[in-house]
Design a protein around this nucleic acid. Structure first.
Lengths: 198, 198, 198, 198
DNA sequence: GATGAATGAGATTTCATTCAT
DNA sequence: AATGAATGAAATCTCATTCAT
């Protein structure tokens, strides 16, 4: 029984991991349920045992992973640090996820962020922006950042700059060696902080 | 005959315009060829008179409109102006396109940027980045911008910041009144120029 | 006006000739009306000026050419010659048509003879068999051919042997140089006459 | 499990049988995939579970059945019998197949022989001719058949005579009662053997 | 007569989802 | 839980035919 449950979790996880890989490679629409099952090494019917639909698989990928990200953002926000340091922390989390799991980032960037399927999740994505916005406002209050900037717009611009670098990696247009990632981190953070700083 | 040609061009244009609207509303995959034809007020077969496939319609939308954008970027680059002014010009072009044609921007941002079928067009997209990069390098040479920044990465971050604002409008997450657009313009440009400036 | 009529006949003929070539190359179903028109150098709409439908084009090809063949068979039958000589004449007409117009034979053999479209023409095809049958009966009456054979069946076997040789040429499975055609003629005739002879 | 496999084979077979019937009645192009499925009593999608395409169904019909025929031809060839007896055996196999499965013969004669998509299978068809040719050569070597005849051409003429009789039955032009079939057999064999004999 | 843009019925094929085993 | 055969809605694309010019 215990074994059964473990195996069960295994299968579910294997299907999700396979889905991330297959969605990353072929896109949501180009990925067939059968492809995912094959990659996971299970019969495709089993997928419907764990998920309601193909769409639900994508939604689950988003929800489970976005939750992690947001949690980390939140703990950065809660830390006792100056606002610029917090912004730097957020940027690092976002960009370093790439090296940990490029396929996951590909799916999040290409399929989820702008998808129609997951309109319901737009609210969740918004949360990240709000955190960034609050950190910027914090910086404005502390005098670290210029007050005349619209914090909300600035959070979008900041986030967009980071996301585009991820996109460059996803599309293979920007080099992504360890060193390149480090440089991208410095460049993006430097640009943003200087742009914001009072 | 002249009338014939005009009418013919009309129909082709009508189909493309309809496609932009329908792709914007339902996404490429959610859009049926029949929807496009219906919106254009023609029989769906006619679409195949002008285009090889549904995919070809999307490609054509991209190629014809991206060409316009690039041409305008180029003329900004060629102008006799300081680099920061040029960057400002490029940002304005990109952001104002939204007000002219939201549906077009929706398609360009949502469908083209991440589409697999248009991977071949990635080269064209790249061109925009290269122009921005050259302007940044020009600014670095003239002493207006900091030399220690990687111009290529900076061009991605810059472009990403702008695109995210467009995305915010597309998703209805950011207000997009005339005044809002003007403020977004100022914010994004201010952030970027300050971030870059020496 | 006279010029007009001549041109008119020209066009019609050009369409028919093109159709024979295109049907021969791609088969009836694989041939598009546009292909025929293109090969004929006219707009495809014009085809409907001369023919009621694509089907009608095939029917016309059959009717006009089969008529010629039958007429020649008939004149052989009417000649004052012994039956074996007449059979030889018929075989020669059939086989030599190949070298004159392989495309036409291809169409007649592949598309018409066994087509469903032209069920109405089966009656016409039958006429050829009847002529052969009458010649065989004539030979049986004159004592040249064995009387115990069923003349009708024999006419089918005889005709089939010839048609298969044509098919071999059509499919490129049998060599068809001038010399080969002559040998095929001798072989087929020799086989048939010896098979029939008393 | 055993039941499962049996049922599975059943379905595949039912689809093939249905296809033979439907192709025979409407021709390959006139037959819709839905017609075949309906005749087989399955959903049309299932056809694509067993076959890659409609074309593949026709190809399969040919390959599987032609294989049977060739196998029987081969065993006749291998038998210890005089060549004329062997030729008679081949003719009987070919003609009697009609009585066993008229629809199958219709498809083989009408669709396969002239189809473009099955040109690749022409090689297989050729095999039948080669067997006949070898038997004729055997007869020529043993002195049973005339040596001056071209064995290859003779094999085509022989086969064509038989196929035309089948065609006559297919088109409903020749009577095909048990007795008629027997007479046709005698006539065709008699004609051929007399024609060939020394 | 001649053109070719326009129409639209129709056919194949795909693939997410179901369900009997 | 697990399988994969079976289903059938849905979508793209083709192409014969029509018809305004």
């Amino acid at each position: 029984m215990t074994d059964g449950s473990i195996a069960q979790e295994d299968r579910r996880k294997r299907i999700l991991d396979a889905a991330i890989r297959v969605f990353a490679e072929h896109g949501y629409h180009g990925a067939r349920v059968g492809d995912i099952a094959e990659d996971a090494g299970v019969a495709h019917g089993l997928l419907y045992h764990y998920f309601a639909s193909k769409d639900d698989v994508l939604r689950t990928i988003f929800v489970e992973n976005w939750g992690h990200l947001i949690a980390r953002f939140r703990s950065v926000e809660a830390a006792v640090e100056p606002a610029p340091k917090k912004l730097e922390g957020i940027a690092k989390i976002l960009l370093r996820t790439w090296r940990n799991d490029p396929a996951l980032v590909t799916v999040m960037v290409r399929e989820v962020a702008r998808s129609q399927q997951l309109q319901a999740q737009v609210e969740d994505v918004r949360e990240a922006f709000v955190i960034v916005q609050r950190v910027i406002e914090e910086g404005q209050a502390s005098g670290a950042f210029r007050k005349e900037l619209d914090a909300r717009l600035a959070s979008w611009v900041f986030y967009g700059g980071l996301e585009e670098v991820l996109t460059g990696w996803v599309l293979g247009q920007l080099p992504d060696s360890e060193e390149d990632v480090a440089r991208a981190e410095r460049t993006a953070i430097d640009l943003a902080l200087r742009g914001l700083s009072a």
